[in-house]
Write a protein that binds this DNA or RNA. Structure first.
Lengths: 343, 343
DNA sequence: GCCTTGAATGATTGCGCTATCATCCAGGGC
DNA sequence: GCCCTGGATGATAGCGCAATCATTCAAGGC
């Protein structure tokens, strides 16, 4: 009845219902509406119901932009991955979002590709949203990126890589160890003349380095390496393996992703090579189609869901305990060699 | 020199540099800093450089939360898809984000699954961020969702479906037409006894309905239908096809996704059935592995990149022209039957 | 000289919310 | 009666920025 106290809506207002509108309808102070919605345990049952009713009547949708500004809590988590067009990262995105959204966080997704420059650019705009937490793929960042992240003092989980010295928390695995394990596996199978097809991305190169060091430990210094651009694709795999097979006598080709390996497989088949008899092929990622190819692709399984899950959990924990000591927690989720029919 | 005019930093402040800090260092008014950063053409060259310098000195990172509140422009676009763990939607996410981020927009990703309830919940929290635009998968929404979207008056593109009556703009294709085209294709190949394995999702069901109506047009009223839960997977495909093949004499099985079709294929192979001689198999989506399977999977290609691209473009256009008449623009990107070696 | 013009810059205000502290009041101890 | 306690509610003041309008000043016309 008494709406004489309303301020006239300024020309800058958006026109939709505000907290004060709900407060007027419910006959309480704006602050009480805020509490009824965000901390209902502080408000009496009857007030809560009146507010609820008023929200429905006014069609009020809270403005979290204003809320974030006032409270310095955005309830936003930034998730930076190279791409989602790769099932491994898609899996991470899927699980991280599942965990975080169940706890009331929303996710600002950033696709940083495979270059430090893109990461820098995107990180800057991401930080301008003042996220409550960040999940960041990889742990080899430019100096500027590291500096910005430290300055932002925002809970952070690096994923999908391994280091002793994380910026904050880390959930991942060692790419070098993957490479080394693949080398040992193939050597134990008796393969000796290796081709490598690797994407031009820093983590793939780490795996290659691990693989090569594994070979060297066994006294093998010779191998053939080809790099391909991103995104990896079957045609890249075919083209580079054709090149390798034309010029070198190889008995195994190791690829930095399953999709490349599939390309190698089809090249081998088109040349009438028996797999793995005349040519062994190793992928990486254990994509859903690795098991479905014929012959079924041997590969390395990374549990993206586990990484996403643990990363999200770590982040939630840290966000809940604001200044918990920066423990430098590191979790290695490992990997698994999947020995199917191409090795 | 003169910093006597500074307000003491309130206890509620976040501690990082603000516009006023930069302004003080640069020796200009805060408003001038704002202009130098957001509308540099309004500021003299020398001022712009001084501000730039001051930004570097202070390590200032703009607070877009405050900016969004003050300007009623969030520079945020919400992108709602069922999942990213499916290459088709991942492709859409990838392209939408590519286009939008090049124009300075950030993307708030929402995974709505395949139920209207999840869509409702997520849409509510999404709207509370006051996005400048929304890309929404599907165009069959609950009444509440439709009402909220209309009330929000935010530029909207529905994707991945088709209707005459979009909420705002629409870029997609007709799932019924897909089903009908698949029916015609298989009938023309001479297949007559059909099994259908479909996910329990509304758009897959539309494709089934189209397929069935295609059969009926040809006078075929009998078919075997099995539904599977989400997410679809190879084991689901194997299990349901085993069930179908045990009980019915079929010469073709149509699946609502490639991954299901791959499961059917492996079941067929394990039974020693020749494909397509004794059993034809049809997928949907033309995932990257469809061409790689053996035999290569026949399927339906949807150009997810085109959908994402056009959707993002439409949205950008609408966001640039605030109250352009709600044209009800509809774009049908169609689909393509990919006739490989399983039909 | 005087006015106009427009580019550059500044001062003020408010976006819609929540932190914080103040107030109010019922219930209880003594 | 008085004071304490604590739950419920309210009033006030900002969060950091940009919209808006005001001011300044050099250049130019006459």
């Amino acid at each position: 009845m008494d709406d004489s106290g309303d301020k006239p809506r300024s020309s800058r207002s958006t026109g939709s219902a505000r907290l004060t509108d709900v407060a007027r309808v419910a006959g309480v102070a704006p602050m009480t509406v805020s509490r009824a919605l965000n901390r209902p345990e502080l408000v009496s049952e009857s007030t809560r119901l009146r507010v609820q009713q008023a929200v429905l009547e006014t069609g009020y949708v809270p403005n979290r932009v204003a809320g974030a500004l006032a409270s310095s809590r955005s309830r936003l988590v930034a998730l930076l991955v190279p791409t989602v067009a790769h099932s491994l990262f898609a899996e991470v995105v899927q699980t991280v979002m599942g965990v975080l959204s169940s706890q009331g966080y929303q996710v600002l997704l950033g696709l940083v590709g495979y270059t430090p420059e893109q990461e820098e650019t995107i990180l800057e705009t991401v930080l301008s949203r003042r996220p409550d937490g960040i999940v960041l793929t990889g742990c080899r960042h430019s100096a500027l990126t590291r500096q910005r992240l430290k300055a932002a003092e925002v809970p952070l989980v690096e994923i999908w890589d391994m280091t002793d010295d994380p910026l904050d928390m880390l959930v991942g695995f060692s790419h070098e160890a993957v490479g080394r394990a693949v080398a040992e596996h193939l050597l134990s199978r008796g393969y000796r003349r290796f081709g490598i097809i690797s994407a031009d991305d820093s983590r793939a190169k780490l795996r290659v380095a691990g693989f090569v060091s594994g070979l060297e430990s066994a006294g093998i210094g010779e191998y053939q390496l080809r790099e391909v651009g991103t995104p990896s694709s079957m045609p890249w795999g075919r083209e580079k393996s054709a090149e390798l097979l034309d010029r070198h006598a190889l008995d195994a080709i190791v690829c930095s992703s399953d999709i490349l390996a599939l390309g190698v497989l089809s090249e081998a088949q088109s040349r009438g090579l028996t797999v793995p008899g005349q040519l062994a092929i190793m992928g990486f990622g254990d994509s859903s189609y690795a098991a479905a190819s014929f012959p079924a692709l041997s590969t390395v399984r990374i549990d993206g869901a586990a990484i996403g899950l643990r990363a999200a959990e770590h982040l939630l924990q840290r966000m809940a305990q604001p200044t918990f000591e920066r423990a430098g927690q590191v979790l290695d989720v490992g990997f698994e060699i999947i020995d199917r029919d191409t090795t």
